[in-house]
Amino acid sequence: MATLTATPTPAGGPRLLRVLRGTLYTTAVLFFCLLAASPFLVMGVVTFQTDQDLYRRGASPFDYEDMPTLEHLDNLFNDTRYLSFVRNSTVTGIAVVVVTLVLSLPAAWALARLTGRWGERAGMLMFIVYLVPPTLLFIPLFRIIVQLGLRDNLLSLILVYPSISVPFSTWLLMGFFKSIPPELEEAALVDGFTRYEAFWRVVLPLARPGIISVVVFTFTLTLHEFIYSLVFISASEVRTLSTGVPTELIRGDVFFWQPLLASALLVAIPVGLVYNLFLDRLVQGFTLGAVKG
């Protein structure tokens, strides 16, 4: 029964009201979907349009008058560095996820077990570090990267991105670790485990939803990040997706709209699918990490 009320309509109740509510519900959801997906729907249409079709003034931008063409997709994969952007982004993302987990899992555990005011302050401090915006740090970090000789090197991004993901992940994981009773660890110690083994074998498996949230969050962050990538990397073969696409496919005032929009859509769909699969876990992660943290 698609009702909007918490009180269910009794069986055989006013049927018209029920249908009306159902329609209202569907309309509302459809409206939001359309709003959220509109640029992607347009991207899907434009990708296959010929230049003539795209630049026909007054014609419907949602429709084909010429035969749809695969020319622009072909162009994107063979004549641009799109695939190398995808590779660079993936490599960076995976490396940053690993670094983030290695740094934030132990730190979060240590902070979660610091009881009282200290632990609370440390959590607050982590969150405040997360607030230091890249816009503030990119100027000094740029100099550090140049001095380390890491300009135009993916290592620069792998080195710097955890500065955003570690504070947040630590803060989120603290909530998870707090929800795991210390008695479980004590029991493991009684069973002859060392503390390190107890952490590895007992605590980490229990924190899996939190770890998954952190992985998804961190990977997204590296995909989305724009400023550091724009400032640290100027060689086009090392560029990541977020900066490579807007800089390589827009030359001066010339916009290659079809490959541009196609490249955005091709990233959006797989990432959207992964997000959808992990949404429930993410919700669970936020509940434990943010609500009780």
Binding site: V29, L30, F32, C33, A36, A37, S38, P39, F40, V42, M43, V46, T220, L223, H224, F226, L241, S242, T243, V245, P246, W257, L260, L261, S263, A264, V267, A268, V271, G272, L273, V274, Y275, N276, L279
Partner: peptide
């Protein structure tokens, strides 16, 4: 519902600089 969820998540899932390029066209 699954499709709706997918569509609703897209703005968040897509790298911002790419979806903003989409809005540049819009």
């Amino acid at each position: 519902m699954w499709i709706a969820r997918m569509l609703l998540i897209l703005p968040w899932a897509t790298p911002l600089s790419l979806s903003v390029v989409g809005w540049l066209w819009m």
